[in-house]
């Protein structure tokens, strides 16, 4: 047990002394996850709105596909992204492999089903009178879309928070697409995996504490947003 205790003490030393390697992983994590959550929201919110609002043939099947994608393993996304982004792949010329934007692409694929599914549910749960009110006040279709999304804003933010929680804690995509390159694409989760493998518990615990703090912040934000959306 001593090595765990000493690891914890060293972890706090790394955190409070501002260890550059530790904070480099934190910076990469925050950067990649912020990019991917933003992309997930921009792409996923309108798609989720259409799925929750419009009635079209095959809608239920699309919903089943989206719900299935919620449990897509990160290593499968990593594998697919690697195959597409490697030099032999169709997106190889973009040079995305082993870069933060490349990781963000993979993480966007991870976050997108969460945002689409939660937005669709939020839109489905909107009061039936909302559409009628907006239309009888003179909205055109674009204004109807934007106002409906604004009315569901807390639920949308909740979707963003849920996606962030999933993305920030994933390891498969970061490891396979990012390559876990020190000072460059090493994230909190890939660093924990590496340091634990090396028997360096201190940095692993330090990064684990930061990850827990991030998860706590996301959860606090989510519970606040849930209250507001009710």
């Amino acid at each position: 047990m001593d090595y765990l205790l000493s690891g914890l003490i060293q972890a706090f030393e790394l955190l409070f002394k501002g260890d550059p390697e530790t904070y480099s992983a934190v910076k990469t994590t925050v950067l990649a996850s912020s990019l991917s959550v933003a992309a997930s929201m921009v792409i996923g919110s309108p798609l989720g709105f259409c799925l929750g609002y419009a009635r079209f043939p095959g809608r239920r099947s699309v919903r089943v596909v989206v719900d299935t994608l919620l449990s897509l393993p990160t290593v499968v996304i990593g594998l697919l992204c690697y195959a597409f982004m490697s030099h032999r792949g169709p997106l190889g010329h973009l040079g995305l492999l082993f870069t933060i934007p490349g990781m963000a692409v993979g993480q966007t694929i991870l976050g997108l089903p969460i945002v689409v599914a939660m937005t669709a549910t939020a839109v489905e749960n909107l009061d039936d009178r909302l559409k009628q009110t907006i239309l009888t006040l003179g909205a055109d279709p674009r204004q109807l879309l934007l106002t409906s999304l604004w009315e569901a804003r807390f639920a949308l933010a909740l979707a963003g928070a849920a996606a962030y929680g999933r993305i920030v804690s994933e390891v498969g995509i970061s490891m396979m697409v990012g390559g876990n390159i020190k000072w460059h694409t090493r994230t909190i989760t890939t660093a924990i995996a590496l340091e634990t493998g090396k028997g360096q518990f201190a940095m692993g615990i330090a990064l684990g504490l930061i990850l827990l703090a991030l998860a706590l912040m996301v959860n606090v934000a989510m519970s606040g947003l849930k209250r507001l959306s009710e």
Partner: peptide, 23 residues
Amino acid sequence: MLNQEPYLLKRSVKGNISYGLKI
């Protein structure tokens, strides 16, 4: 149209009344 049970947008009274003008 005004219904028996109105729906107010999740914003202030001012925001609700000015909505139709703004759009």
